[in-house]
Write a protein that binds this DNA or RNA. Structure first.
Length: 459
RNA sequence: GCCAGGAUGGCCGAACGGUAAGGCGCACGCCUGGAAAGCGUGUUCCCUUUGGGAUUCUGGGUUCAAAUCCCAGUCCUGGCGCCA
């Protein structure tokens, strides 16, 4: 949530920022509601002040036993009460509407964010690992074909048990998934992160705290209710990213500077509806309804947040460097920022298996495996995340940041494609081998369960 | 799931329906040669800030007036039950 006082003091700055985002917000109406609300609030406070004085008088009249004066004062108080009710009913209604609308106003981009309408205007900062590529993209089998050949990814049966967009990992595929999670978390623990294993369902209140609600209800899976129906604060949703439980973990709390910076990492499965996202660009496991992810969440003092963003990006990149996977860093433009973010870097790994138009000249394509974002105090305001700058001072909103560290399926895609060998096997990156019990190559295995489908080989 | 008890500031903890005690921590000031002690101030939110309003878990209700009484809910603790 943006600061209301900014809206009052410098509405034009807010307007410009929202225009740069391409956000559709009726600012004038918002300002008008705010002004009207303040008038009513002032009037209500005044009336309450009067009544408080009368009530106080009644107390002393009762003590003195002045019956007549007391009855008179009670009459006066009753009249004030009725008036207060009228004024405050209107003020509450407006206040609620204001709050609701404020929840739909996106974050103001940082000044350093490049101007632009959409992803075409994102700026590529740099690339890593392209100097000495180990493969030629033309000769790479896409992960969904390879996964089937090696019998490590089973999309069909995932669709059978659960639905399209869900898949089984089998054998070395499943083992690779577990290995990657442990591997990533070990890296980040070295970087000073404290592990968390959060609850997977989260409340509407939490979803609102990080910015998924109210605008993006359709992206998430709701438990026990239709997405179209009204929801309550306590209703549950399946975690769309560990950012939600972890950021909201300290909701309505006040931290001390000694606690900051606070760095948490959490592995969770993530669930997203991804409505309408089907086609050649999403074949295989690059866009699925359930995927695992290690998430990095930072709570910092405001003046540190932009330095922290650079470090956070580096902490996420470290995973790809150790996996020897080529990648690039994008700086998202104003129009491509997510709702809550003031500045975002994307990390895109190179997946050479499918040649796409917007991929690099070497062929293949880019896959987003992490977004590192500074939300400044946007989530802190919504979730009530504060800290005390000095022990004796009053509490202020802190800044939150997060980055994936990293999204598992796409990293797996990159490994299966970039570390693929000519004979159709996959070399496990050296740093990951200890997590696979020393195994160096994924060779696939005899098909499991094929006989049940009538395709089994007879001995 | 059932029964009982509980929720008050950063922390602890009082309050016959009538101004929300007191203590601790922390910071600053006074005092001091310096410190401790002592004294003072501050340590939620909102508004139009020399002022006012709200705030005793949340939401309703009774009342001129609710931390206090009533109803509903959330969470915590204990006991019983169930359970991987």
């Amino acid at each position: 949530m943006i600061d209301r006082s900014l809206l009052r003091e410098d509405p034009e700055a807010v307007r410009e920022a929202l225009d740069n985002r391409g956000a559709d917000v009726d600012l004038d109406e918002l300002i008008e509601i705010d002004e009207h609300w303040r008038e009513l609030k002032a009037r209500g406070d005044e009336l309450r002040h009067e009544r408080n004085q009368v009530t106080e008088r009644i107390g002393s009249l009762v003590a003195k036993g002045k019956q007549d004066e007391k009855d008179e004062a009670i009459e006066e108080s009753k009249e004030l009460k009725a008036e207060i009710e009228d004024v405050e009913a209107e003020a509450t209604e407006l206040g609620d509407e204001l709050r609701e609308r404020m929840l739909e106003v996106p974050q103001i981009p940082d000044e350093s964010v490049p101007l632009g309408l959409d992803e075409r205007h994102n700026v590529e900062d740099r690339r890593w690992g392209f100097d000495d590529l180990r493969v030629d993209a033309d000769e790479i089998t896409p992960h969904y074909e390879l996964g089937e050949e090696l019998d490590i990814i089973d999309e069909e049966r995932g669709a059978k048990t659960t639905g399209s967009g869900f898949y089984f990992l089998k054998g070395d595929g499943a083992r690779l998934e577990h290995a990657l999670i442990q591997f990533m978390m070990d890296i980040h623990r070295e970087q000073g992160y404290v592990d968390l294993f959060p609850p997977v369902p989260v409340t509407s209140k939490s979803m609102r705290g990080t910015g998924q609600l109210p605008k993006f209800a359709d992206d998430a899976y709701r438990l026990g209710g239709s997405n179209d129906e009204e929801y309550e604060d306590d209703d549950l949703w399946l975690c769309p990213t560990a950012e939600v439980p972890v950021t909201n973990m300290y909701a309505d709390e006040i931290l001390l500077t000694d606690d900051l910076p606070l760095k948490h990492q959490a592995y969770t499965p993530n669930f997203r509806r991804e409505a309408g996202e089907h086609g050649t660009e999403t074949r295989g496991i690059v866009r699925v309804h359930q995927f695992n992810k290690v998430e990095l969440v930072n709570f910092v003092e405001p003046e540190d947040s932009y330095d922290r963003l650079e470090s956070l990006l580096d902490e996420a990149e470290e995973v790809l460097r150790q996996l020897e996977l080529p990648y690039r860093i994008l700086e998202l433009c104003t129009g491509d920022l997510t709702f809550a973010s003031a500045k975002t870097y994307d990390i895109e790994v190179w997946a050479p298996g499918d040649d796409m138009d917007d991929g690099p000249e070497e062929g293949g394509r880019w896959l987003e495996v992490s977004s590192a974002s500074n939300f400044e105090d946007f989530q802190a305001r919504r979730a009530g995340l504060r800290y005390r700058p000095e022990r004796h001072e009053s509490a202020e909103y802190l800044h939150t940041l997060n980055a994936s560290g990293l999204a598992l399926p796409r990293v797996m895609v990159a490994i299966l494609e970039y570390h693929q060998n000519e004979d159709g096997t996959v070399t496990i990156p050296e740093a990951l081998q200890p997590y696979m019990g020393g195994q160096e190559v994924i060779e696939g295995h005899e098909k499991v369960g094929e006989s049940a489908l009538g395709a089994g080989e007879q001995e």
